[in-house]
Design a binder for these strands. Structure first.
Lengths: 121, 121
DNA sequence: GATATAGTTAAGCACATGCTTAACTATTTA
DNA sequence: TAAATAGTTAAGCATGTGCTTAACTATATC
């Protein structure tokens, strides 16, 4: 159930993370709040393009911003990052626990068939 | 440097994770290897569509598969999952450590200016 | 008040993505 | 060997994405 409701949020979050320019912006913001122009500097693209990336990050809930004077200051919103990381790790752990159990099973010395084993697979 | 070289891999990985059908396939595969047809069952789309999603997952390195008889069996490749989760958590932790330091600083009772403080921020 | 600065909006374009249908190829199974 | 099963390939289409240029709006700063 954890996974189901967050579907749309995860769509938007992973989609936002899939672009190198947006990851670059997030990496900068991880080091502290920054203005749009500052985010744009390392990016080899025009300001409007950066604005569009920012809009994607904001509507995914990864970033928030507020305008102060003529400057828009942006900062990371870390909850969505947690959500995404957790989704990945849950799948990974589920898979790796399976591998571990399988490894144990294969290492177990031969055993008479029909012996109790504790798992109904 | 960690972040830079993996750029293309992260593009492909997050792009792959951004689609609910592909996440559904991964969630199934986390519970164990499965055939294409089995992955397709809960998905409300045709088999060719599922094949295309599988191709995306494989070329992102998230899944591998081998054909046994007329059945293609797929399984998760967890290294790329780790890579993606780690990228997210590094940003998140960097940001949250910043917040913690800021919180401490604001809670610190007034102190004469120019006093040593131990941090070069 | 003129000019520079920082951001914003709108339009348009090239290419990528997600799906479909139709036709086809290999393996089982009866 | 005929028929069912599991997957594959190719083509086409609607929509989404990432970028650009051009024109415009607010704040500073001189």
């Amino acid at each position: 159930m954890t996974t189901v409701e967050h579907g749309a949020a995860l769509d938007a979050t992973f989609q936002a993370l899939a672009d190198p320019a947006r990851r670059c912006m997030l990496a900068q913001l991880a080091r502290g709040p920054a203005a749009v122009g500052k985010l744009a500097r390392p990016l080899a693209m025009t300001l409007p393009a950066v604005m569009q990336h920012l809009a994607v990050l904001e509507s995914a809930g990864l970033v928030r911003s507020q305008k102060i004077g003529r400057v828009r200051v942006c900062h990371i919103e870390s909850r969505r990052l947690s959500l995404a990381a957790r989704w990945i790790d849950q799948r990974r752990l589920e898979w790796e626990r399976r591998l571990d159990r399988l490894g144990e099973y294969l290492q177990t010395p031969k055993r008479p068939r029909g012996d109790p084993h504790g798992d109904g697979n």
